[in-house]
Nucleic acid binder design. Structure first.
Lengths: 195, 195
DNA sequence: CGCCAGATAGCACTAATAGAACTATGGCTA
DNA sequence: TAGCCATAGTTCTATTAGTGCTATCTGGCG
């Protein structure tokens, strides 16, 4: 099958997934959409990345595009998923290998290197992280509330709810880490560790 | 400051961090170490990536290397952190911006696209994910037990403990997602949604 | 007037992986 | 005893993934 028979990377599936709800969307729309929902559990690709993936998906025959006039003279390209695209992503959802989630937790990495840091400063880093995830939990809650209002969006609503819980448990984990850090600092002070 | 004044990427800090415990290690050692501890909260870079980062760190003056005979005739390169390297990573731990963790959760993405999937198959995917994270929780527990036994490794032990809790809450989140999926499937069956 | 929002696209660059190639030893087994 | 595999160890190449910046165009807002 053709010269371009390779599968898209996960990001390609994510973009195709945004289109699988049936709407006709521009690259710009897709970026905004990714920012407001995908980013909670999958990160949001750069605009240039989205356009690149759209090009690949079109070459694969998974999407088609048409140019539409948008206001008066400005035009944009609208993308729509094809039957082949729907088949392909359905296949992917159901049958691709289940891989462990990719996590790059900068704060955990810094705590892991805690022997290098001033305890108070390390504490501040974790507290700032805690604030971040509390904010994210709230945003995910808002996103899930608006998804619940839309018919046919039961699964996005389910996953944003999951995201909300995820960030709430990140908050709890941060609290436990703070308690552990305090315990450790006390112990080190007692033993007169590195003065 | 010379021609090579740029900061390493996060992966570089991770590699330098592995060396910040004071040991003299080969690239091979570093890879094994990353696989057995870093990977729980920060992923494990490919060997080629590790060697590339070591090269960069050496150019920056953050590590030095020497060639050592290892058995009889075989030789390897051992890396050691320098004072400049210790300063740099200490600075990074204490003062770099606190960024939200990067998460790419393939399973959540697939659940988000649940409208495309057969409910039973989607359920299987989440169950398989649940099994994965239970396994990871156990491995993290083992890693934290061995870290606790080593003097000076209080922070790695703390973070592997955090990782263990992290994967345990991933397990709980998976259970809640399963319950939500079942609820949704029941509701759809009632309404006769797409037969 | 300048800036921002909507919209698209290209370019330069970095990050990161996969895979092969090569050296070398020791243990297993047909 | 020859062949093969596993482990230790390093390096290189090819390729992809992904970001950030720049450029372009229009219209509305203050």
């Amino acid at each position: 099958m053709g010269p371009e028979a390779k599968e898209p990377p996960p990001t390609g599936w994510a973009v195709l997934g945004l289109l699988s709800f049936g709407r006709e969307l521009s690259g710009y729309d897709l970026k905004k959409w990714a920012d407001s929902s995908l980013r909670f559990f999958y990160w949001s690709p750069a605009s240039s990345q989205i356009y690149a993936e759209l090009g690949r998906l079109e070459r694969l025959g998974y999407v088609t595009s048409r140019v539409a006039a948008q206001d008066d003279l400005r035009n944009k390209r609208l993308f729509r998923i094809t039957a082949a695209g729907t088949n392909a992503i359905t296949e992917w959802v159901q049958h691709s290998a289940v891989e462990p989630p990719v996590l790059k937790h900068g704060v955990a990495l810094r705590a892991w290197l805690g022997h290098l840091a001033d305890p108070a400063r390390l504490r501040d880093v974790v507290v700032e992280h805690r604030d971040n995830v509390v904010l994210l939990a709230g945003e995910a809650a808002a996103a899930s509330a608006s998804a619940e209002a839309i018919d046919g969006w039961e699964f996005p609503a389910l996953v944003t709810r999951w995201s909300q819980r995820y960030y709430e448990s990140e908050r709890d984990l941060a609290d436990e880490m703070l308690a552990d850090l305090d315990r450790l600092a006390r112990k080190r002070r007692h033993r007169g560790h590195r003065a």
